[in-house]
Structure formats: structure tokens, C-alpha cells
């Protein structure tokens, strides 16, 4: 053993080769390690639809909404974990335009996502953050929002109102219509 060590010490080339090989082997191992780590962190890029597919969500009896009126409804997000708590309860504004025609708006202001509030007297949605204002039909009335409210697609089946949702709508990912 000692003889060999001395050998190594006296042979710098051999030591150098071992060092280089060691670095190279670790580089390979590092890449192998990096693959699952990066894949884990950036799973949103690899499988965006695994976590964010939208689904039809029941919003209760269609007749609990009065024609010509708008009111708040809430649903439990279809993609939840048991520890989500209240954050999985998502509110939305339901407007019954006509008997079979509904408009359901996301709560989030299109400017920066703050919760818009409905005022039935003036028939306006107002945002408490930067003063975005929308009309009854969700179109932009005033303020900084770049577009009207995000709107869910809706359907009525067997007297129940359904909306298609499951994501936090943003400008780059509005609700699919």
C-alpha cells in the first residue's frame, strides 16, 4: 500500500489523470442527478396540462339564479389537495341574462387579479386594487384593465348550471371558451 501511494506521489501525471477522471465521472453523475431535480421543479413546463386541465363544474340549480340579476356563486376547484383548505373554494359572478343564457365571470380583475365586486344598484363591477370598472356584461368600462372580465364557458344540463374552470385565469391563460 505505502509503496503504491509513494508511487502516486512520484507520478504527477497519473494523479492528474485520476483527478480528471474523477471530475468527469462526477460531472456525469451530476447531470444524472440534475435531470430529476430540474424535471421536478419545472414539471409545469413538461406537463402543463397535467396540473391545469379544466373541467366542467356544477354551480347548482340553474333556477337559483334570477333572470336579469347577478350574484356570487362558489365552487370547489376540481383539482385540489386535502390540505388546500378554504383556498380551493373559488368564487365567481353568475349573471342570468335570459332563461337559458348565463354569463359567468371569474372573480379576478384582468388587470392584476384582485377580486372584483358587483354592485347591483349601479350594475357595475368595481376592483378595489386599482379601480378597474366593468359593465354588467363583463366588458371593460373604465380603469387600467386591458380587457373585459374573464368569462367561463357555461352549459345547463338537467336544470344544473355548469362552468368550465379549474385554473387561475391570467392574461396568458384566460379561461378556455
Amino acid at each position: 500500500m505505502t509503496e503504491k501511494k509513494e508511487d502516486d506521489a512520484q507520478n504527477p501525471t497519473r494523479r492528474n489523470v485520476l483527478f480528471k477522471a474523477g471530475v468527469a465521472v462526477n460531472a456525469v453523475a451530476g447531470v444524472l442527478l440534475a435531470i430529476p431535480i430540474v424535471g421536478y421543479i419545472f414539471s409545469a413546463f413538461a406537463h402543463p396540462k397535467l396540473v391545469g386541465a379544466e373541467a366542467w363544474i356544477a354551480l347548482g340549480d340553474a333556477d337559483s339564479y334570477v333572470t336579469g340579476q347577478t350574484r356570487l356563486a362558489t365552487y370547489r376547484n376540481p383539482f385540489t389537495r386535502s390540505w388546500d383548505g378554504a383556498t380551493a373554494e373559488i368564487p365567481c359572478w353568475v349573471r342570468r341574462v335570459e332563461d337559458q343564457k348565463f354569463q359567468v365571470f371569474a372573480i379576478n380583475c384582468t388587470h392584476l387579479g384582485c377580486p372584483v365586486r358587483w354592485f347591483q344598484e349601479s350594475k357595475l363591477f368595481m376592483c378595489p386594487c386599482h379601480g378597474g370598472i366593468y359593465y354588467e356584461d363583463g366588458s371593460r368600462a373604465a380603469g387600467p384593465p386591458p380587457r373585459g372580465l374573464f368569462e367561463y364557458s357555461t352549459k345547463v344540463e338537467n336544470g344544473t348550471l355548469y362552468v368550465k374552470g379549474g385554473i387561475l385565469p391570467t392574461l396568458s391563460e384566460p379561461l378556455s371558451s
Binding site: 383539482f79 385540489t80 388546500d84 380551493a88
Partner: peptide, 9 residues
């Protein structure tokens, strides 16, 4: 957000 909405993750 670690998911489609603001929640557990």
C-alpha cells in the same frame, strides 16, 4: 403557484 390555482402547493 405550484399548480393551476393558489392552493396547498
Amino acid at each position: 403557484l405550484g399548480g393551476p390555482i393558489i392552493a396547498g402547493e
